[in-house]
Write a protein that binds this DNA or RNA. Structure first.
Length: 485
RNA sequence: CGGGGCGUGGCGCAGUCCGGUAGCGCACCUGCUUUGGGAGCAGGGGGUCGCCGGUUCGAAUCCGGCCGCCCCGACCA
């Protein structure tokens, strides 16, 4: 009966594969409230690893953590016109509390600009108080119509950076700096290559002057917006009266940024590396980098293999996250399947024969079916496992880069060809855009594809496109088009 | 909110057309034998069949109403 324990394959139905794998790998459970998800310990462990890496990067770039409240008064949200227009339809509003109707409704934050700036305005008097470089780890609520675990949930966890600067150029640099930090995290930790660039006005954050984003290509050839960084100009400073006094004694509005990544990244991780066997985690974000499966028949064997497993774990402690799977009610084979489905990068088998020969068996999650098992002496195993994990990290990244390259096309100029491609394989298409929003709209209606970003220079084609993909007029920009999550 | 599908032990489903003791697989518990790629045998526990009402001697099954969920679209990190 192994058949019904298998996941739906990615090629058969990618969406079904995804919802099955998040459950089967023990990442999430559903909650009594529609659209909300429970993050189970194994899923939360991945988030904690992400948090810890990102938090380090934020602090290394001079940011401090703080915490602002869950609620904001409706009137605060209303103060920035575009912002309220963008978010009001998605908010959850508390109208009753303590058994009474509230005088003013409280909005559950969909993002915290309108919570933070009215308060932080009072922290800023002089140019000497700038820049303010804040981050908070928080939950937010956006009333989405259709939800999917990690990718789009009613409540989600994220970090949101909020900064204020004395001059415009500095804010612009900050927005760019944090985009680069995101890219570094996504590539170095998640092994998920991204294209960075600027969003078109229609895809901009509500209230921003400019929005920058990291876009990744998932295994079903749809794009995932993995992180955004916004140059807010003085829009929020004016709305919330965030002013400072210059060296010359003049009063000026500050320049703001905000930037965020969310638990959506876990969805990106799953759809970048997962396969028909289940989850596949890059070692840097794997809660367990190595799982030891002890094998025994008799009680004596049980004791000797567990002792050996314990010694190996101790030998790797500090450098490698090791778990010994000593469950008694499962056979070794069942454990192999279980940990492969949960995406553990490296498995070690320790049986009676290995105790005799002072060796172990090592199997990596991503190795091909043949010659998967490697017999390695104990000392060598201890010495090489940390390097193996580094190699595995590099390997999954190379594979993700290869896949993205294989599913990206450049120089496509014929609209019919583009439409056929979006109906078929999908993927990234680099092509010209005239700059007119009407062309964006038409392409979206025809194909569901949108401009993900206007790519940064290093991602642009050597030969810039001459014509707009849609209208054929001369192209102002090279755009990255794709169907998106 | 429009179109489609589905609600039956924790999970996946059969049973519904044609009313008659609620069943199967997985999971779970106990025991014995097992354990190097999803163990076997034996025993066992668990479901007011989404909800409300109607028809009937009798409803998971027929009729009426309601609710919820999933998938496809419009909104979005």
């Amino acid at each position: 009966m192994t058949k019904d324990r298998r996941l739906t394959s990615q090629s058969e139905d990618f969406a079904a594969w995804y919802t099955e794998v998040v459950q089967a790998a023990g990442l999430v459970d559903y909650s009594p409230v529609r659209g909300c998800m429970v993050i189970k310990p194994y899923g939360y462990a991945i988030w904690e690893l992400m948090q810890s890496a990102l938090d380090g990067l934020f602090k290394a770039t001079g940011h401090q953590n703080a915490y602002f409240p869950l609620f904001l008064p409706q009137s605060a949200l209303d103060r920035e016109a575009e912002h309220v227009e963008g978010f009001a339809p998605q908010t959850a509003v508390v109208t009753h509390a303590g058994g009474e109707e509230l005088e003013e409704p409280l909005v559950v934050r969909p993002t915290s600009e309108a919570v933070i700036w009215p308060v932080v305005a009072n922290w800023i008097q002089s140019y000497r108080d700038l820049p303010v470089l804040l981050n908070q780890w928080a939950n937010v609520v956006r009333w989405e119509l259709r939800t999917r675990p990690f990718l789009r949930t009613t409540e989600f966890l994220w970090q949101e950076g909020h900064t204020a600067h004395a001059i415009a150029e500095e804010a612009r640099e900050e927005a760019r700096r944090m985009l680069a930090v995101y890219r570094e995290f996504m590539e170095e930790w998640m092994a998920m290559p991204v294209v960075t660039g600027e969003k078109t006005p229609s895809e901009r954050f509500a209230g921003a002057e400019r929005t920058f984003a990291c876009e990744a290509l998932m295994k079903d050839n749809k794009a995932l917006q993995a992180g955004t960084s916004h140059d807010l100009g003085q829009n929020f400073a004016r709305a919330f009266e965030v002013q400072y006094q210059t060296e010359e004694g003049r009063h000026e509005f500050v320049w703001n940024t905000s930037w965020g990544v969310s638990t959506r990244l876990i969805g990106g991780l799953i759809m970048t590396h997962g396969d028909d066997q289940g989850l596949s985690l890059p070692p840097r974000l794997a809660p367990y980098q190595l799982v030891i499966v002890p094998i025994w028949k008799s009680d004596e064997q049980r004791q000797s293999v567990l002792e050996k497993a314990e010694l190996l774990r101790a030998g790797l402690a500090g450098g490698v996250r090791v778990h010994i799977d000593d469950r008694e009610n499962m056979t070794p084979g069942a454990k192999y399947f279980d940990w492969e489905r949960r995406g553990v990068p490296l498995r070690m088998e320790v049986g009676p024969r290995d105790v005799e020969k002072s060796q172990v068996v090592l199997v990596s999650r991503t190795a091909s079916a043949e010659d998967r098992k490697r017999f390695v002496g104990d000392a060598e195993a201890l010495a090489t496992i940390p390097e193996m994990l580094i190699d595995l990290q590099a390997g999954v990244r190379r594979e993700a880069e290869r896949r993205r390259a294989e599913n990206s096309v450049r120089g496509l100029a014929d609209y019919g060809e583009f439409k056929a491609r979006m109906e078929g394989s999908g993927g990234f298409v680099y092509a010209g855009w005239c700059g007119d929003e009407r062309c964006e709209q038409k392409v979206k209606q025809d194909t569901k594809a949108t401009i993900r970003v206007l790519p940064d220079p290093e991602f642009r084609s050597e030969e810039p496109p001459e014509r707009c993909l849609c209208c054929g007029e001369s192209a102002d920009h090279e755009a990255l088009w794709a169907k998106a999550y």
